[in-house]
Amino acid sequence: MLILDEHRLTVGFHHQKVSLTFVKFQLLKPLAAKHKRIFTRDQLIQNMYSDHRIVNHRTIDSHIKKLRKKLNDISHSKDWLQSLYGKGYHLAL
């Protein structure tokens, strides 16, 4: 189970922790809260940017790639963020 600390912007798993940027934390938060749900890029953008700015879908892909690397730093044996072609992303717990 992942442990998110919103005040410190960290995520932990089995006594390992990594720090995240605010944007990456905002990306992870809904995925962790509803880990069985598939989120589209547009849904993730809405969760990440409350000011309704226009963000390219490739920006989300880039954030996902970096977040995957951070999550791999706390557990190499698990593929946390899974992409479903043509649908979106979900967190595999």
Score class of each variant (00 low, 15 high):
Met1Val: 02
Lys34Glu: 15
Leu84Val: 11
Trp80Val: 01
Ile38Met: 04
Ile38His: 07
Ile64Gly: 01
Asp61Leu: 06
Ile60Ser: 02
Phe22Thr: 07
Leu93Met: 13
Lys65Val: 00
Leu4Cys: 02
Gln46Arg: 14
Leu9Gly: 03
Leu71Glu: 08
Ser77Trp: 06
His57Arg: 11
Leu2Gln: 07
Ser62Trp: 12
Ser50Leu: 13
His76Glu: 11
Gln26Pro: 00
His7Asp: 13
Lys34Pro: 00
Ser75Thr: 01
His14Ser: 15
Ile60Cys: 01
Gly12Val: 01
Ile3His: 12
Leu27Asn: 02
His63Ala: 08
Lys78Gly: 00
Val18Leu: 09
Thr21Arg: 02
Ile54Asp: 15
His63Pro: 02
Leu91Gln: 04
His7Met: 05
Thr21Lys: 12
Tyr49Ile: 11
Gln16Arg: 15
Arg8Ala: 13
Arg53Cys: 05
Leu28Glu: 10
Met48Phe: 06
Lys17Tyr: 12
Asp79Gln: 12
Tyr49Thr: 04
Tyr85Glu: 11
Lys24Phe: 04
Leu91Asn: 04
Ala92Leu: 10
Met1Ile: 01
Tyr89His: 08
Lys29Trp: 06
Leu84Trp: 07
Asp42Cys: 01
Thr59Cys: 02
Lys36Pro: 01
Ala33Arg: 14
Phe25Lys: 03
His35Met: 12
His7Asn: 15
Arg41Gln: 10
Asp79Asn: 13
His63Phe: 12
Arg41Lys: 15
Gln16Thr: 02
Leu67Ile: 01
Lys70Met: 09
Asp51Glu: 12
His90Phe: 14
Phe22Ala: 10
Ala92Lys: 11
Ile74Ala: 09
Asp73Tyr: 04
Arg37Phe: 01
His52Val: 02
Leu4Ala: 09
Ala32Arg: 09
Ala32Ile: 08
Val23Ser: 14
Leu84Glu: 13
Thr10Cys: 07
Ile60Phe: 07
Leu44Asp: 00
Arg68Val: 05
Ser50Tyr: 07
Pro30Gly: 08
Asp42Thr: 09
Glu6Asn: 06
Leu67Lys: 07
Leu71Lys: 03
Lys87Arg: 15
Arg41Tyr: 05
Lys29Pro: 03
Lys69Glu: 11
Tyr89Arg: 02
Arg58Gln: 14
Tyr89Val: 00
His35Ala: 11
Ala32Gln: 11
Arg68Gly: 03
Thr21Phe: 08
Gly88Tyr: 04
Thr40Asn: 10
Lys34Met: 10
Gly86Leu: 00
Leu71Met: 10
His63Lys: 04
Leu9Lys: 10
Ile45Val: 15
Ile38Arg: 01
Thr40Gln: 12
Gln46Phe: 10
Lys69Leu: 05
His57Asp: 13
His63Arg: 00
Ala33Phe: 08
Lys36Arg: 15
